[in-house]
């Protein structure tokens, strides 16, 4: 094996072989990009949230007035409410549904369970842009969903994309389509870790499958469930592409599809109000920070470290 190692070592100057230097040589590429494009922009964004911009150049300090503006903005409270309702909505669907499906797929009672797992997972591979365009077509006034409701079920057509109240349900529908397979995957890795003996001894005691689900599966899945809940909250609060595509870069009828991330983008690149956009960014970051801390507190560093 070591034959291949006999290379002239002095191609690289001696300094770089010094014991204290070596780790930093390996670290340098990542660290440079990380500090310039991740750490510095965070600091800059916080600074910008206290400044007022005329175009991209001249800026002056305005103290907390950006934040005051944000909280006085009707659209901001609407965006915050929408995003919160959306997040809760996705939790109500995207926890129980994938959990039950994962348990059923894992139970050995479904033939070809891998095929179903893969088919339900496929939407997670499509880009959110594609998810948005496809659902914009399906939810259109003369789109498939309405024709199906009308023609097959005899119901009235709904103006999915034109009524404020239907904006969040439409977004939750897209989320369900895109993330169910992914969450099944998470629950599945939780299920694999439940010791089989628990079920065996319960079976000897004559427990019904339903009883076993309630008294073994659910409690043993609690860490996984918690992990998925926190991930969904963090993801939910950052929802952007789906409404951005569904409403052609706007916010939907009556701002019904206006989310926090969408409002930040529009404040920055439609109104060119960088200071206010930065302040909104800081507020969004704080919301996410709180939920991430909960995750850290209960799960160690990243949830999956062992």
């Amino acid at each position: 094996m070591l034959n291949s190692l006999r290379m002239p070592r002095r191609l690289i100057p001696g300094f770089f072989h010094h014991k204290k230097v070596v780790p930093f040589v390996f670290l340098a590429p990542f660290l440079t990009v990380f500090l310039i494009f991740k750490v510095y922009p965070v600091i800059l964004a916080i600074i910008m949230s206290f400044q007022n911009f005329q175009g991209v150049k001249s800026q002056d300090w305005v103290g907390l007035s950006n934040y005051e503006n944000v909280f006085e903005l009707v659209r901001f409270s609407q965006a915050l409410t929408n995003t919160t309702v959306y997040t809760i909505g996705t939790l109500l669907v995207l926890i129980p549904l994938p959990l039950v499906l994962a348990v059923l797929l894992d139970s050995g009672r479904v033939v070809a369970s891998t095929v179903f797992r893969v088919l339900i997972f496929l939407p997670a591979l499509t880009s959110l842009v594609v998810a948005g365009t496809v659902f914009r077509l399906i939810l259109a006034k003369d789109g498939f969903l309405n024709l199906f409701l009308e023609g097959t079920l005899g119901l009235d057509r709904l103006r999915w994309l034109e009524v404020s109240e239907l904006a969040l349900p439409s977004l939750i529908l897209i989320a369900t389509w895109r993330w169910t397979g992914m969450n099944i995957l998470y629950f599945n890795s939780g299920l694999v870790n439940i010791p089989q003996e628990l079920y065996e001894s319960a079976a000897i005691d004559g427990a019904s499958p339903w009883k076993m689900f309630l008294s073994i599966t659910l409690p043993m899945l609690r860490p996984t469930t918690f992990f998925v809940v926190v991930l969904s909250i963090i993801g939910g609060y950052q929802v952007f592409v789906e409404p951005f595509i569904l409403y052609a870069g706007g916010a939907g009828p009556g701002d019904g599809g206006l989310t926090l991330a969408l409002l930040i983008y529009r404040t920055a690149f439609t109104s060119f109000n960088f200071g206010t956009a930065a302040a909104m960014g800081v507020i969004l970051a704080l919301i996410i920070f709180v939920f991430s801390l909960i995750q850290f507190r209960f799960f160690g560093v990243l949830g999956r470290e062992d």
């Binding site: 510095y40 800059l44 910008m48 950052q238 930040i264 960088f274 956009a277 960014g281």
Partner: peptide
């Protein structure tokens, strides 16, 4: 850190 915090900076 949400990416939307960084878009302006």
């Amino acid at each position: 850190i949400p990416f939307h915090l960084l878009i302006v900076s």
